[in-house]
């Protein structure tokens, strides 16, 4: 059978998926399921209490008003309703995004360590695969495969939520299609998918640092990865206190520690984007859109992070090749 580099890489990534199906696939799916379940419970609770107390879940208090309301929405409030619905779609992915951050963090930390600990590295190393390809496949898994699955799961959950809310509202006389036509599900999905390349670039320093620790540590990579930068930060703070060396403490915590430990959490790049916020949900959403997110590409922080990440990953590959402790 013929094997090419691209093919090998594909199978290496597949291998990572097999091994980490729990984190990469089941974590977002279960989160989405729980999210949907909680919302169904919420809607039912609302309906039951509403019925018991003799009023309907509608702004005006009666169905007619609600229908009138939805028909009479002006442009401004239509935008608001649309943005609210988009927010509903985003909300599930945001929760999953936090889960994704944890999954990717611990995945990277174990990626080049776990197989050294259980000695299965000796099996992987018995195959004609370069260490560069191995590390590369783990980077792709962390920064492309995992967020992609999260986005897909998030989008599906979001659509489900949207339909659920629309169905619930339709019980009160609001036209489902009218409401749905106010939301922008495709745009939401495109926004989320479009964020993946940004996620890759932004998360790279954290991925690089964690994988470097993972490839280097003889034991307890978590301790090294987390305790080392924090200890350095404390020492810097102490020196600052004494006034001997003047390393700006806040710079260290924000531009070093946060970048090498926290950048796997999606959306953390918005710290580099100016003008977040707005007077209404629609404005807020558009300020968080993917095109605005990409203005982070103009920041030196992002590219310095990428450069540092490449150096750390080169180190990780070197350690993967030569670490001899199994």
């Amino acid at each position: 059978m013929k094997t090419s580099t691209a093919n090998t890489l594909f199978w290496l990534v597949k291998r990572e998926f097999w091994e980490h199906r729990g984190g990469f696939f089941w974590a977002p799916v279960v989160t989405g399921g729980v999210f949907v379940l909680l919302n169904i419970m919420g809607i039912i609770t609302g309906e039951v209490f509403g019925a018991r107390n003799g009023f309907n879940l509608s702004f005006g208090g009666s169905q007619n008003n609600m229908r009138l309301l939805s028909q009479a929405l002006d442009k401004q409030s239509m935008d608001t309703v649309g943005a609210g619905l988009d927010m509903v779609m985003y909300s599930s992915t945001m929760i999953m995004g936090i889960i994704l951050g944890f999954v990717v963090f611990f995945y990277c930390l174990g990626a080049l360590y776990d197989d050294r600990r259980d000695r299965s590295i000796l099996f992987w190393k018995s195959l004609p695969i370069s260490d560069t390809a191995t590390v590369l496949s783990k980077i792709i898994s962390a920064t492309v495969v995992a967020p992609f699955i999260t986005v897909i799961a998030g989008a599906l959950t979001g659509i489900l939520m949207l339909l659920m809310f629309a169905a619930a509202l339709s019980l009160h006389g609001v036209s489902v299609w009218h409401l749905l036509s106010l939301s922008h599900p495709l745009q939401v999905i495109a926004n989320m998918l479009g964020s993946i390349p940004l996620y890759l670039l932004w998360a790279l320093p954290t991925v690089g640092w964690l994988m470097l620790c993972s490839a280097w540590a003889r034991s307890k990579p978590f301790l090294w990865a987390v305790a080392l930068p924090i200890a350095v930060g404390i020492v810097i703070g102490w020196f600052d206190l004494l006034g001997t060396v003047n390393v700006p403490n806040s710079w260290y915590w924000r531009d070093v520690v946060a970048r090498i430990l926290g950048s796997v959490f999606p959306g953390s790049w918005f710290g580099e984007v100016s003008g977040i916020g707005g007077h209404n949900p629609a404005e807020l959403l558009s300020s968080l859109s993917v095109t605005r997110g990409y203005t982070a590409l103009a920041s030196a922080n992002l590219w310095l992070g990428v450069a540092a990440a490449i150096a750390m990953l080169a180190g990780a590959i070197w350690f993967r090749r030569w670490r001899d402790d199994s």
């Binding site: 059978m1 094997t3 093919n7 090998t8 199978w11 290496l12 597949k14 291998r15 097999w18 091994e19 197989d115 259980d118 299965s120 099996f123 992987w124 195959l127 004609p128 695969i129």
Partner: peptide, 17 residues
């Protein structure tokens, strides 16, 4: 590796070796 299945490991080696 302890997590791998027979069919997975055969598949994997078949495609990379």
């Amino acid at each position: 590796p302890r997590w791998i299945r027979v069919c997975e490991v055969v598949d994997f080696v078949a495609h990379v070796h």
